[in-house]
Nucleic acid binder design. Structure first.
Lengths: 186, 186
DNA sequence: TTTGCTACCGAATAATCGTTCAGTTTCTGA
DNA sequence: TCAGAAACTGAACGATTATTCGGTAGCAAA
């Protein structure tokens, strides 16, 4: 792994453990086995590393969400998306903690955040069609999106904090609850 | 308002705006109109102020949640609790942002967090009975609690970020979605 | 009036921070 | 083989930090 990658990964690890301002460049340099000066060879400043991590994580967010969806059945598709995001977070706990606690203002500027919207257009369309076709309840799109996302986050929390195993039935229930939350209650 | 209160309030304001480590004691002293030394007369160190804020916010959490509940009707009671927490967060945006971003590890230690569990016993019992009496779905208590809480947080987010007005219908829908999420689907 | 205590002050301290830069090593193409 | 570019180094710098501490002001009991 090249030094730039090592710097990014080390910064990510330390930052979710200690917080941005509690993570000195000297420590990043030491644990990444590079000199402090090397960091400034690849990055303008500390904040730029944080922004690069942010962009890296959101890069293929849309792709992750929409991967391997079943061809039909809106509910089945939603459940697959839910699991996609859940598994991504469980498999990348650093990414999860980063977007939850570091990837927010005032650490990340609004300009940097706004750029990520692009990656979510297909997800937006999916939910928009769901509302139009009466698969989903007649609610503001933004509300549906936020609840759906929030439910995944809740589930990931319980799993990562070890409060629930989230195996088998627990996971099935978590998905079912999320679906009942947003589905069209006919 | 006495100086100790002023120090706490000022620290709370600055900390949700800038983050803990980006908020120097000198600034707290200046904006609270006290000397730096005075802060250390009332508090052992910076972290103790943060912990005091944390305890202050969670102190009457249980009380806020259970206030003015209707006498009967499980669903009505839940909706009242939901609104209680929602209104508390909307009315105290500083408290909301604090518990979401500052009131978590590694800033707040696990010992300090664990002490707050006491305030939630009545809430726990409410949900526990809801599951037993089949008002709520047959799911792990922790899962129901986390989803219910997460839904309020999602709604508060949308409101505070100005993405939804959350007046009238929006709010009704948000509560309905949350209820459909946890209710017993017979 | 004296004594002791609490509230309060802010310059001084020691540690630590992000960043710079002069210099060395390594790589690359001619 | 060699020159120029790119990668890399870490001591040094100036700024900022949390905390300390010697001292002042006000008050209440003796």
């Amino acid at each position: 792994m090249d030094k730039k990658q090592r710097i990014i990964i080390t910064m990510l690890e330390l930052v979710v453990k200690q917080g941005v301002h509690a993570t000195p460049m000297s420590q990043v340099a030491r644990e990444a086995n590079v000199a402090v000066g090397t960091i400034y060879h690849y990055f303008e400043n500390k904040n730029q590393i944080i922004e690069e991590i942010y962009n890296m994580i959101y890069q293929d967010y849309g792709v992750v969400l929409m991967a391997n969806l079943p061809n039909e059945g809106f509910q089945k598709q939603y459940e697959a998306m839910w699991l996609n995001l859940y598994n991504y977070f469980i498999g990348n706990p650093l990414a999860f903690q980063f977007v939850e606690f570091i990837g927010v203002p005032p650490i990340i500027s609004k300009e940097v955040m706004d750029k990520t919207v692009v990656h979510f257009s297909s997800v937006r369309d999916f939910f928009l069609n769901g509302i139009k076709d009466k698969h989903l309840r007649d609610a503001p799109l933004r509300l549906v999106l936020q609840y759906a996302y929030g439910n995944v986050v809740s589930a990931v929390w319980l799993k990562t904090k070890g409060e629930l195993d989230m195996e088998g039935d627990d996971l099935k229930t978590a998905i079912a609850m999320s679906w009942d939350c947003i589905k069209n209650q006919r």
